[in-house]
């Protein structure tokens, strides 16, 4: 089991190398570099050339890439051109915010989407089913920047009960141990801080989770409907098992493999959605950082961030695979 995980994680290394290669190539193709974006137009060509040399941008792209790979393998992802800080430090400082947001959004999506989907499948063709369908299609088709702005207007502006952006109020003074504000607040026993953190998290998490909620609802409904048509459901009913048990214990457990698969796949979409949501809500995560990085052609920062995103997606799917083996005894780890 442990060996399996080590094997899988080792298998991720080539993926990460290929991804960084692709990013590197794309950045070479994009017009402009960090010097044109970050240095004043009034600087002399000689000065610009000096800076290019200092940042290593004058060397052939392939050499730059090999340099990067060599350093990356020792854990050094270089210095950010813009922030003048090691990339790893900046990323580690802001990663918890994004993970917190992504996990909260996924929990909301699963917590709402799964029951709604099962309910719709249990009563196909009824009003419940129609409501669930309408809700999920609205969720799937809603652009999240638009929903975000709408909710800010409503809850922060009109009702004024939730903050419009940011992650915590100024001067909250909770020590950052893990970087996850919710966990840190609980560790410090600061319930006021926990409440504040949750209030800040609520809108961005809901907005980010909306799309996934819709997809999970649809997927759950379809999978449970299929499972309900299986022979073993007939067997369960012939045993005198209650409908609720037939639905959850027999049909839903068998439908879970499909639902979990879609959660894994949608997690990627969710991460890209997080960039927009983080920008709308001024959420200090790596998504907004990446957008800043791209606009300033901050190559080391961009590659570092893309690798973090790739890593998160790989880890999520590893967890999904682990989950498969828990729900379906026919699936073994190999």
């Amino acid at each position: 089991m442990l060996l399996y995980f080590i094997k899988r994680l080792a298998g991720a290394v080539p993926v990460l190398i290929v991804v960084s290669g692709i990013i590197f190539a794309l950045m070479q193709l994009a017009p402009g570099d960090a010097v044109t974006m970050l240095i004043s137009d009034e600087a002399s060509e000689a000065d610009k050339a000096r800076i290019r040399e200092a940042w290593g941008l004058d060397r052939p792209p392939f050499i730059q890439f090999l340099n990067f790979l060599g350093n990356a393998l020792t854990g050094d992802f270089g210095m950010s051109f813009r922030y003048k800080m090691p990339v790893i430090e900046i990323v580690m400082d802001r990663l918890p915010a994004t993970i917190e947001l992504a996990v909260a959004a996924t929990l909301i999506a699963v917590g709402v989407g799964v029951p709604l989907g099962v309910l719709a499948a249990a009563r196909p063709g009824t009003a419940w089913d129609a409501i669930a369908s309408a809700f999920s299609f609205a969720g799937i088709s809603m652009p999240n920047f638009w929903l975000g702005i709408l909710l800010i207007l409503l809850f922060a502006g009109y009702f004024n009960i939730l903050p419009s952006g940011g992650r915590e109020p100024w001067g909250l003074g909770v020590e950052h141990v893990t970087g996850f504000l919710i966990i840190d607040s609980i560790l410090a026993g600061r319930w006021d801080a926990l409440g504040a953190a949750l209030k800040h998290l609520a809108l961005p998490a809901i907005v980010l989770g909306t799309n996934m909620t819709g997809i999970i609802t649809q997927m759950t409904r379809a999978q449970v409907l299929d499972a309900l048509r299986e022979d073993f459901v007939m067997t369960a009913r012939s045993k005198g098992v209650s409908e609720a048990r037939v639905l959850w214990r027999h049909a839903f457990r068998n439908a879970m493999v499909g639902v979990v698969t879609i959660i894994g796949l949608e997690f990627g979409t969710l991460l890209s959605g997080a960039m927009i949501v983080e920008t709308v809500f001024a959420w200090p995560g790596i998504g907004s950082l990446l957008i800043t990085g791209i606009s300033s052609r901050d190559f080391p920062l961009i590659i570092g961030l893309v690798l973090v995103y790739t890593g998160m997606f790989i880890v999520m799917n590893l967890l999904i695979d682990l989950f498969y083996t828990l729900i379906d005894p026919r699936i073994r780890m190999n």
């Binding site: 022979d231 067997t235 005198g240 027999h250 457990r253 729900i327």
Partner: peptide, 19 residues
């Protein structure tokens, strides 16, 4: 069902819950 009247089905491969 199951207590007074019980039933078995054609295909034993699909009639038991696989999980």
């Amino acid at each position: 069902r199951g207590a007074h009247i019980a039933m078995i089905f054609q295909d034993p491969m699909t009639s038991l819950n696989p999980v």
